[in-house]
């Protein structure tokens, strides 16, 4: 589904990703862990098409499509979703009409009929239960005045409504208390299927108690320095990142 080879990316002439490789297949959950500044968020942003990143080398294919040449909205319409680490507040844009517009753009792209207001409302109400979100947040402007936890739940709600094939969760656990974390993770678990895949970017192992990954990768200084199964996350929790990072530096 997602195939990244030797991806090298710089920001303002500073290399951040230095030859990253990653293969994600349908039905899999991959966790990407790593210390601050290792390039985790850069990876999420480059994959979703944010401006300000220069790809110096390498390729990223998604469903056989050359991801790096696609506009962000086309990536989304092809089934990619990024749950933001810091969801953006958009004053004046109603949360419901925003999400209805987004869903219908995706449906249009895929040759499906657009949903009318009634069908959309019944869909969104169903998915709101999934993230235990209060209904009044639907009537508010996108993320405006939402608490940190509400913003993250709103991301998962959007994900549930848009039903992506590949979802990238960028530090969705940061700033969440344990209840919110449980709800967010529960949402992801209900959405996972044999046809979709998740890339969960996180600093802490804690989220992986709730979203159990098939693979864990350690990102350090722009490269994946170790891959393993969920036991690797537990080991990181116990020993920290230093032993791996030091080892990688010694080898380099």
């Amino acid at each position: 589904m997602l195939s990244i080879k030797n991806l090298q990316v710089s920001v303002e002439d500073k290399p951040i990703l230095k030859g990253l490789n990653l293969e994600v297949k349908a039905g899999e959950i991959h966790a990407i862990m790593g210390p601050n500044g290792s390039g985790k968020s850069t990876l999420a942003h480059v994959l979703s098409g944010r401006e300000g990143y220069r790809v110096d080398a390498g390729t990223a294919y998604y469903k056989g499509l050359n991801l790096l040449e696609m506009a962000p909205e086309i990536r989304a319409r092809e089934g990619m979703f990024l749950a933001f680490q810091y969801p953006i507040e958009i004053p004046g844009v109603n949360n419901t009409s925003f999400l209805k517009k987004a869903l219908n753009e995706i449906r249009k792209h895929n040759g499906e009929e657009e949903l009318d207001a009634i069908d959309f409302l019944s869909l969104i109400k169903k998915q709101m239960n999934l993230v235990e979100m209060k209904e009044n947040l639907l009537r508010r402007p996108v993320n405006q005045g939402f608490s940190g936890g509400e913003k993250k739940r709103n991301e998962i709600l959007q994900m549930a409504v848009l039903n992506p094939t590949l979802a990238i969760l960028d530090e969705t656990d940061s700033g969440l208390d344990i209840d919110a974390l449980r709800i967010v993770a529960g949402g992801v678990n209900k959405l996972r299927s044999a046809d979709n895949a998740f890339v969960v970017i996180t600093h802490y192992q804690r989220l992986l108690d709730y979203i159990v990954p098939d693979f864990v990768h350690v990102l350090s200084d722009g490269q994946i320095i170790k891959s393993g199964t969920k036991e690797l996350a537990l080991e990181l929790e116990e020993r920290g990142y230093d032993w791996l990072v030091d080892k990688a530096e010694t080898q380099a």
């Binding site: 098409g49 506009a71 909205e73 990024l82 844009v93 402007p141």
Partner: peptide, 26 residues
Amino acid sequence: DPDALFYLQSRGIGKKDAALMLTRAF
């Protein structure tokens, strides 16, 4: 706001529509 534009685009809304939404909202 480029962040708001990108946020809307990342949800499948085209750049022009996103710009229009933000301007109308303003």
